[in-house]
Write a protein that binds this DNA or RNA. Structure first.
Lengths: 199, 199, 199, 199
DNA sequence: GTTTAATCGAGACGGTACGTCAGGTCTTTAG
DNA sequence: CTAAAGACCTGACGTACCGTCTCGATTAAAC
């Protein structure tokens, strides 16, 4: 369910065909040209749609691109879930490796990079990103960590709020700065640092 | 020494007055309007300079803004050095708190955020950022960590390359995403996690 | 009976309410904004009618406006007749003065000016104007002139076809060009010129 | 000297190439498509010019078209003068026949028709038309008539102001309404009516 | 009196052109 | 000969209407 959908009553006469064509055109252009180079006119042209049909339903290019990325994400509908096999280290390693793999794949991460970037300029977009993308993952992670606390794998004093940042932050940092390599070894390094300190 | 300067022979007829006016105008506009909203025309107008004078010396808006930020940084030229009192935890805490303080000040961090963001679009800019801003700090940090290894405060097996990311990454992550608070307590939390795991 | 009516069978389910609302909205907008500035959407909105209801019954903005002007004219349905008191000069003076008075009243003549103007672009409209507005008046005038010829007030060789143009043309010319004043004195001047030459 | 020229100082950096290209493109489009159908974008495209270059120097399509018509007129620079051979009837007949010939030629009169039409919508244009096109001709005509009064060919009481309208009005009327033929015979008829009455 | 089908208000749709803004290049003028 | 000023061509912006189209919801006719 994307953001625009939430505003649309069931009685809307909105054309589903046009909506999907726009989102797919926007996603294609995002990958082909990047956020800055793509234009609303270009999206409309590639989608075979009037510009007004975009402006009618989205307030800005950012909003279209955000929905386009969400839409693309739905297609490749991730289970998203964190496994809970009882072995915390193994479970987290799985997740971190998956994240690293995704970020290392230029194609798959281009849209995410763009959205991160745009959310810096655009506070409204930033809130949507946090709300729809980051917080869900964060909550899943925290749930898994609480489960580990209950199982005695983490100390009772563990700061559940800081741990996810300690895990994801360094990976995100390397991804954005591209100064040093982002690989499974680095993820393992971070993971062991965090777990050792809190066991 | 900014980037443009490096291309400019000492015999250049380039007007220093114009160069400084442009950099200061660009920095003002960056803080006032943000990167996306500011324009080359706007910089030229505020600097009292012809557009061509900008295009003659810089290839893009990003380049002007980067130099403008460097120029502004030079004014408030910090030593940036890491102390080495022998107490590693105290020394790192000092640095992390200083970073947190700077990032929490919207005005002081706005330009840095913009540059980080732009460096995601612009690989050339990204390299300049890494080279001129990040690597120096990174090397200082690694020097301090090596000193701590020698002093026995960190285990001999410590991964000197991963540790700075484990420290700065989470802070950077919270700063960019603005989803959760960035404060001294969080910095302390990260610091103790990292040190405990590697002591 | 307006033009659209002629196409509509007596069994039509056409809404009279909508038809009248459209014509009145169109006339109001014509006077308020002028032909160029008014839009079909504007007419529909002011009439409280769907656009399609206009497109269903009229082929173009010109056609709606023409019917609107006719409709407005019917309301103030003048006999328009030329008197025949036996005194040709007095009778024509009466008619010319009435025409001048109408044309001098900006409000009453605005729609007529617009229609004249539009009929220059639009041959179909031009024919409707001639057929429904000009020819009737022209024929009445020619009847009156023939009566005067029979009464010996005009020479037998008088060109009945050219005279009405000689009378109305100069008045129309001043009205359209607005370069010089259009008043009773000018009408009298024209009238005496025409009558002297043909007596 | 066209209207735009009057605003342009001798030090203007305006491109003469662009100015002429725009006026010629506008005139071509006026004849090819007519005023309503032609667009600013179309003029710019045909002239090989940016839209902004048109908007920089003219406030509206009407203004461009007006200058374009003046420009075209200058090319075919008519002496425009009224002859004064001493034979008033012959001199006026020459002028009226020339006007009739021009108005009967669809191609030559299209631009004039358009300008007349537009001047009805656009009071500023109307004033320019009167000032630059009508009044000069009017003054020439009145000069010739005054000369005829001095020569005793017209009565001393002749209304010099009303006569030109009595001559041109009926011709203009037939041209605009297209209801009845506009030819030399009609012009002669009008001319003899006017002269007989004022001799 | 119900069907039933054309018409209605509403407004989304694919488009075209609008008039504005800024990009990056080229040209003129003053110092 | 440089630099300011700014005109130039280009192209995207976001808006207004175009004329077409689909939606239920009246209505008035024919059953």
């Amino acid at each position: 369910m994307n953001v625009a959908d939430q505003r649309v009553a069931s009685t809307s006469r909105r054309s589903e065909r046009a909506r999907v064509a726009i989102l797919e055109a926007a996603y294609d252009l995002l990958l082909d040209e990047g956020f800055l180079a793509m234009t609303i006119e270009g999206i409309a042209a590639r989608a075979g749609v009037g510009k007004q049909t975009i402006y009618r339903w989205w307030p800005s290019k950012s909003a279209v691109v955000f929905d386009a990325a969400l839409h693309a994400g739905e297609q490749a509908a991730e289970d998203g879930g964190l496994p809970d096999t009882g072995d915390l280290a193994a479970d987290l390693r799985l997740v971190l490796h998956a994240i690293v793999d995704e970020l290392r794949d230029e194609r798959r991460s281009a849209a995410q990079r763009t959205i991160m970037v745009e959310s810096m300029h655009d506070h409204a977009l930033a809130e949507k990103v946090v709300e729809h993308i980051l917080r869900p993952q964060l909550e899943l992670t925290k749930d898994r960590l609480r489960s580990a606390v209950r199982a005695g794998q983490l100390g009772a004093a563990t700061d559940i709020d800081a741990l996810p940042d300690a895990l994801y932050g360094p990976i995100f940092y390397r991804w954005m700065l591209r100064a040093r390599p982002l690989d499974h070894a680095f993820a393992d390094q971070i993971l062991s640092t965090v777990l050792e300190a809190n066991s």
